[in-house]
Amino acid sequence: MADDKRNVIVDIKGVSKHFGTGDARVDALRDVDLKVHAGEVIALLGPSGSGKTTLLNVIGCILEPNQGQVQLDGEMVYDNRWLRSDLRKLRLDKIGFVFQFHNLLPFLDAKDNIALVLQLAKKSKAEAQARAIELLDYLEVGHRKDAMPAQLSGGEAQRVAIARALANSPRIILADEPTAALDSKRAGIVMDLLRKLAAEQDACIIAVTHDEKIYDRFDRLFHLRDGQLDHDQIN
C-alpha cells in the first residue's frame, strides 16, 4: 500500500467543474475520482461533450475545478496558493502534451521545436540542442532534425511532437487524440512508443481517444458520460 501511494502520480478526488449559471449551467465534470500510477497508460473514452477534454485541462493545470482536490506528482494544486505563473512552471517541468495535430511551431525546425521547451526551462542552448537531437534519435527521426514541420510526414511530425512532450522528462504526459491523424499502422507504432516511454521514464500517460483500434494498448480505459467517470475497465 505504501508503494502504491508513492507511485501515484495523478490523484484526483471529487473534482467537479461547471460552466455558466442558472439555466445555461453545464456540468462538465461531476465528482470525478481518478488515480493514475507511474508507468501506467490510460485512456479517457466517451462521446463528444462528455467532459474528457475538461478533465484533461484540469489535469494539465489550465482549468481550475469548482470543487475537489487535484494532486500531481505529490503536489496539491488549485489550493489558492498557486499563481498562474506557478501553474505554468508546473506544466513546463512536469507535464508533456501531445496533440491531435502535433501543433509544432511552423517557424522552427524539428530540433528547435524541442530545444525551445528546454530553453524555456533555463537549459543552455548547447544543452538544449544536444538533448533535442538525442530525443529525435531515440524516436528514430534524428535524420529529420533540420526539417520544418511542413516538410514532415504525419507520423514524423507526431514523433517530433512526442519528443517535445518528453523534453523536460515530465512525470505526466497528456495526449489529446494522439493517433487521430494517423493511419492504423502508424497509430499502433505511436502508442507502442508512448507505452515504452511511460515504462522507461516512470511517467504516466493519459490519453483522450476515440480510436478503438488502439484500445488494447492501454492499461485501463475510463468512460466518461455526462461528466461522470462511470467505468474503469482493466485491459
Binding site: 505554468r88 496533440f99 511551431l105 511552423p106 524555456l120
Partner: peptide, 16 residues
C-alpha cells in the same frame, strides 16, 4: 493564436 496557445501550454511565460 493557435501557436500562442501552444506556447502557453508548453509553459512559455507571457514575456516570451
Amino acid at each position: 493564436l493557435k501557436q500562442i496557445a501552444t506556447l502557453k501550454l508548453i509553459g512559455a511565460p507571457d514575456r516570451v
